Computed example of a mutant assay.
Amino acid sequence: MADDRTETSSQVSSQGDHGSVDSGFVSPSSSTAHLPAVSLTPAHLNHLNKQLESMDPMDILRFCKVFFPGLYQSTAFGLTGLVTIDMLSKIDAESKNPQPIDLIFLDTLYHFQETYDLVERVKERYNVRVHVFKPADVETTQEFENLYGEKLYENSSELYDWIAKVEPLQRAYSELKVAAVLTGRRRSQGGQRGDIPVIELDEERGIIKINPLVNWSFAQVKAYIDEHKVPYNALLDKGYKSVGDWHSTVPVAEGEDERAGRWKGQDKTECGIHNKQSRYAKWLEQTARQQRGQQEVPAA
């Protein structure tokens, strides 16, 4: 998938070389090693959210392009992210000096082929740069499974999320010097997303998160896709509404929540990148203590 519009990164130390429990970051070169590029007081953040709450997503995006330095879009090429990409292209077309927003794509190595095909179609349609970040030190699914074993996503889902998603994203933030990031989260998706604001501060990562389509419903998103003929994942025509890894995504039944097909049957609604970093740092620390304890137990 690599070409002149794609940048792939697999640099960083192994996941076992993790940092403090508080930070949740794996190395001193991570994005908490320096102050955030944008600092907003709670009062300022509240003021911005009050002003942006009733604004159209296009106007929110126009504002964010002017206001935030180091702005990127993190996307798995779901419908909401695709709408954002299309809107940004239209905003650039209005300008005599367009400044496209680069994309960050986490290649877990377990995406559907339809997702990889969509990435190529988006790059061709919008001429946008895609920075691809994979799990550290591996390039293929086979290399990943040689290192961590088969079905890590089943045998240790927390470890899988850390290696395949959380660590690559924080590496992306660090290497690209990301200050603010556009996401595809919407309140209508439910779960932990039910009351998110337009702009929020991820204090652990030192990142401003912006949810430009936070107020839109799935129907509004799909209507925009259809009206503007935005390329989308072929799986949506097969009953999928939210597409992640092939091993944890199934079609959605009539009347189900649009993210009901993600981790179906599991007590889980997020893949990790929108969870607190300290959750994974504490888990890693606990795992390390358990391993040390087992090593110290004398043989019978």
Score class of each variant (00 low, 15 high):
residue 188 S to N: 13
residue 203 E to F: 10
residue 176 L to I: 07
residue 177 K to I: 07
residue 14 S to W: 10
residue 105 F to C: 01
residue 139 E to F: 00
residue 163 I to R: 09
residue 11 Q to H: 12
residue 246 W to G: 01
residue 253 A to F: 06
residue 199 I to M: 07
residue 253 A to P: 00
residue 84 T to P: 03
residue 183 T to C: 12
residue 202 D to Y: 13
residue 79 L to K: 15
residue 106 L to K: 02
residue 41 T to P: 04
residue 159 L to K: 13
residue 199 I to S: 04
residue 142 Q to C: 00
residue 79 L to M: 14
residue 204 E to T: 10
residue 140 T to D: 01
residue 87 M to Y: 04
residue 245 D to A: 12
residue 68 F to S: 07
residue 134 K to H: 02
residue 105 F to A: 06
residue 251 P to M: 06
residue 164 A to C: 09
residue 145 E to P: 01
residue 131 H to R: 07
residue 243 V to E: 12
residue 88 L to R: 08
residue 237 D to A: 15
residue 176 L to R: 02
residue 208 I to C: 11
residue 201 L to K: 15
residue 295 Q to T: 10
residue 44 H to D: 10
residue 44 H to S: 14
residue 127 N to R: 10
residue 262 R to M: 08
residue 210 I to Q: 09
residue 57 P to T: 05
residue 293 G to E: 14
residue 101 I to W: 06
residue 52 L to K: 02
residue 165 K to W: 04
residue 131 H to D: 03
residue 50 K to V: 02
residue 58 M to L: 12
residue 68 F to M: 11
residue 216 W to Y: 14
residue 278 S to G: 02
residue 177 K to E: 15
residue 118 L to K: 03
residue 121 R to H: 09
residue 243 V to M: 10
residue 7 E to C: 02
residue 118 L to W: 03
residue 251 P to G: 12
residue 140 T to A: 01
residue 271 C to R: 02
residue 201 L to H: 12
residue 18 H to K: 09
residue 213 L to S: 04
residue 235 L to G: 00
residue 152 L to Y: 02
residue 30 S to Y: 14
residue 46 N to E: 13
residue 264 K to R: 15
residue 187 R to T: 09
residue 28 P to K: 09
residue 273 I to C: 08
residue 289 R to Y: 01
residue 121 R to P: 00
residue 196 I to H: 01
residue 89 S to L: 08
residue 191 G to H: 11
residue 204 E to K: 15
residue 168 P to F: 04
residue 77 F to N: 03
residue 184 G to D: 09
residue 62 R to H: 13
residue 2 A to D: 11
residue 141 T to C: 05
residue 11 Q to R: 11
residue 27 S to T: 11
residue 72 Y to V: 14
residue 132 V to Y: 01
residue 200 E to Y: 08
residue 97 N to Q: 14
residue 25 F to L: 14
residue 158 E to G: 01
residue 63 F to A: 03
residue 8 T to W: 00
residue 196 I to Q: 04
residue 71 L to S: 11
residue 57 P to Q: 05
residue 37 A to T: 09
residue 143 E to A: 15
residue 89 S to E: 08
residue 198 V to I: 15
residue 232 Y to Q: 09
residue 206 G to E: 10
residue 176 L to Y: 06
residue 15 Q to V: 13
residue 261 G to T: 06
residue 38 V to D: 04
residue 190 G to F: 06
residue 5 R to Y: 14
residue 102 D to L: 02
residue 231 P to M: 05
